[in-house]
Simulated scan of single mutants.
Amino acid sequence: MKLKQKLVEKPWGKEVLPEMFHAKSEKKIGEVWFEAPKGVTPQLMVKYLFTSEKLSIQVHPNDRQARRVGLPHGKDECWFILDAEPDAVLGLGLKKKVSGTKLKTAAILGEIEDLMDWKPVKKGDFFYIPAGTIHAIGPGISLVEVQRNVDITYRIYDYGRPRELHLEEAIAVAKLTDYDMKYSSEVPADMSASLLVGAPFELFQIVGTDDEVISQTGSKEWQIIPLEGSVTVRGKLIGAGECGICPRYSDIDLSQNGTSLIACTKT
């Protein structure tokens, strides 16, 4: 099935989106979500993000921590960079290990940006963000985010915007150290590749019909995000800027020879 597109206003968003979204808005659109119909709850959630300003510095809990507050699981996510201005950066972990007290003090005093490890990014970069990773997205970036479908974010710092912070909760779940670059990669645009395996979900870039990198066993949910061209999912044409979902990999027809991201849950 084709999921419904939803434009989400954000203070750090953009007024002009890529042409594939056919969207005109006088508001700042920061995210494009894909929603399932009532009664269907996907295990994964796909979003496009477009930034003109810095996003909040934040963190998500792992499974054990999330269950303590009544949620079914924690939140891991990943980012595939579609476009980035020359000076664009992501905040991934801390420059060095610090105490929870130091992190909290830096957040209160507005000095936490100096603790963050800001890494330059470019088109085609990929980053997996395990639960517990302190992270932020800078301005001038367009990306696809794939995440476990649960609504839990602990905001540490928001540059003075009038939104709620969650310092105590964040410090309790955060890894107060640096980011392991083994979770990142540079993805060639012209070839299929396995971007993420062995995590709570898996992600692949598929170019044309070259899908040998995909293991089709076990998963009961597949989400397809065409980046160029289109695919057919259970008879529905899914184009760039759209998202489809199906229970079996055999429901996906790649014969249109586009380029897509394909995500699946891990059994």
Rank of each mutant, 00 (worst) to 15 (best):
M1F: 01
M1S: 02
K4Q: 08
L7A: 13
K10V: 08
K10C: 02
E15T: 14
F21G: 01
S25C: 00
K27S: 07
K28Q: 06
V32Q: 01
W33I: 05
F34N: 03
P37A: 01
K38R: 09
P42D: 01
L44W: 07
M45V: 11
T51C: 09
S52L: 01
E53V: 08
L55P: 05
A66E: 08
V69L: 07
P72I: 09
K75V: 11
F80G: 00
A84S: 08
P86C: 07
P86F: 05
D87C: 07
S99F: 02
G100P: 01
T101L: 09
T101I: 12
K104C: 00
I112D: 10
D114I: 13
L115D: 11
M116G: 02
M116P: 02
D117S: 06
W118L: 13
W118D: 06
K119I: 10
D125R: 11
F127Q: 04
P130H: 07
G132K: 02
I134W: 01
I134D: 06
G138N: 10
S142G: 13
R148W: 00
N149G: 11
V150I: 00
I152R: 00
R155C: 05
Y157E: 03
P162M: 03
R163A: 09
E164W: 00
L165R: 03
H166T: 03
L167M: 02
E168F: 06
E168Y: 02
A170K: 06
V173Q: 03
A174C: 08
L176F: 05
T177R: 04
D178S: 15
Y179P: 06
D180N: 14
M181L: 14
S185W: 12
S185Y: 04
S185E: 03
S185P: 10
E186Y: 00
D190A: 07
S192Q: 03
A193N: 11
Q205R: 14
I206V: 15
V207H: 10
V207C: 12
D211I: 13
E212M: 14
S215Y: 14
T217L: 15
K220T: 15
E221A: 05
E228N: 12
G229Y: 08
V231G: 15
G235L: 12
I238E: 05
G239P: 11
E242T: 08
E242V: 05
E242F: 09
I245R: 04
R248E: 13
R248I: 01
S250R: 15
D251E: 03
S255E: 13
K266L: 15
